[in-house]
């Protein structure tokens, strides 16, 4: 109950945020990225965190949603909402096929197989003609009920809605029978099986929920950016970023993935746009022409992934419960 209220409060704050900040496309844009990564990572967490099945190929479901939606809108002029629903169906189909292969495997093999499936999906999208191949798909115009889809607000609230739904489902799963079974599977698959839990059924259930939510986010992303190609929506880097966000925030907890996204996405943006380097130079703390100044201005942006790597190593070695674990000693 406490968690429901917390979700409601945070969602409420997030919902009025654009009204407070006024029309600021840049800020809203960054917030959309935060909400998207929070939701992606939370959706992954249902399968990875609670059921302990670390999928390294979630980009496949994101891409399935994005591609299905874009193809249906550009080629068949379908309503965006219907296209999103179709995206979920395609993602679930891919998930069922993936599940039938990877859930037979454990440990190392599970992770490796999930990468292989996702790579097959990526290469197929790259090689087929109907997916736009290497050229990707550009969407010039899209409309829905007279909403201004050039504005960021529909997508901000769309992402927020999916995040709230994802958190709600996670919360429900935690206290339901399915949730207990999933956690039993995570702790010890053999013991869970001997208790009569249908491993494959519950793993697939978690995967389908996770894949559907991920696909929905992929569809939203595609209509938001209005351009997709394989490197934007199907890349292995995306799958890994989703996992790292959950791990760094706190895997297997309700708020861990959200915290991870809230910290990491703005951090990446700060490094990308070089705010720190510029600020130091502007304040006169570092001379623009000095070695350090040049390094800060020219090279710090390169460091974004390096920082991810360092945080990951530190988290795995010293913070197994993620950054959330710092605040809550007891789960």
């Amino acid at each position: 109950m406490k968690q429901i209220i917390l979700i409601a409060i945070i969602a409420g704050i997030a919902a009025v945020l654009p009204l407070v900040t006024g029309e600021s496309p840049y800020f809203t844009g960054v917030m959309i990225s935060v909400l998207m990564m929070a939701a992606l990572s939370s959706a992954w967490n249902i399968l990875g965190g609670y059921a302990g099945q670390y999928s390294f190929g979630h980009a496949a479901y994101f891409g399935a949603g994005a591609y299905t939606t874009m193809i249906l809108i550009t080629q068949f002029n379908l309503n965006p909402l219907l296209s999103m629903a179709a995206g979920i169906i395609i993602a679930c189909l891919i998930a069922l096929i993936t599940g039938s292969i990877v859930f037979r495997l454990r440990g190392h093999y599970f992770g490796l197989a999930s990468i292989a499936v996702a790579e097959i999906v990526r290469l197929s999208a790259l090689n087929f003609e109907f997916t736009g191949g290497a050229q990707g798909i550009l969407l010039s115009e899209v409309s829905l009920w007279g909403l201004d889809l050039n504005s960021k607000n529909p997508f901000y609230y769309g992402m927020l809605l999916v995040l709230v739904v994802t958190l709600g489902i996670t919360l429900y799963l935690r206290t339901s029978k399915t949730g207990f079974y999933l956690q039993a599977i995570r702790e010890d698959q053999d013991a869970a099986a001997s208790l009569g839990i249908n491993l494959s059924f519950y793993k697939n259930k978690a995967l389908l929920i996770s894949a559907s939510l991920t696909s929905l986010l992929g569809s939203l992303y595609a209509v938001y950016i209005r351009f997709i190609d394989t490197s934007a929506v199907l890349d292995l880097r995306l799958s890994i970023e989703i996992i790292l966000t959950a791990i760094i925030g706190g895997v297997g907890t309700l708020w861990g993935p959200v915290l991870g996204a809230v910290l990491l996405v703005p951090l990446a943006e700060v490094l990308r746009s070089n705010v720190i380097g510029d600020a130091l130079v502007k304040q006169g703390l570092v001379s623009e022409t000095s070695g350090l100044g040049i390094f800060l201005k020219e090279n710090l942006a390169h460091a974004h992934v390096l920082v991810y790597g360092i945080i990951t190593v530190v988290c795995i070695l010293y913070l197994p419960k993620g950054i959330l674990g710092l605040f809550r000693r007891v789960k």
Partner: peptide
């Protein structure tokens, strides 16, 4: 500004 080759 750096875009890292990523449209987003």
């Amino acid at each position: 500004e750096d875009d890292g080759g990523d449209p987003k």
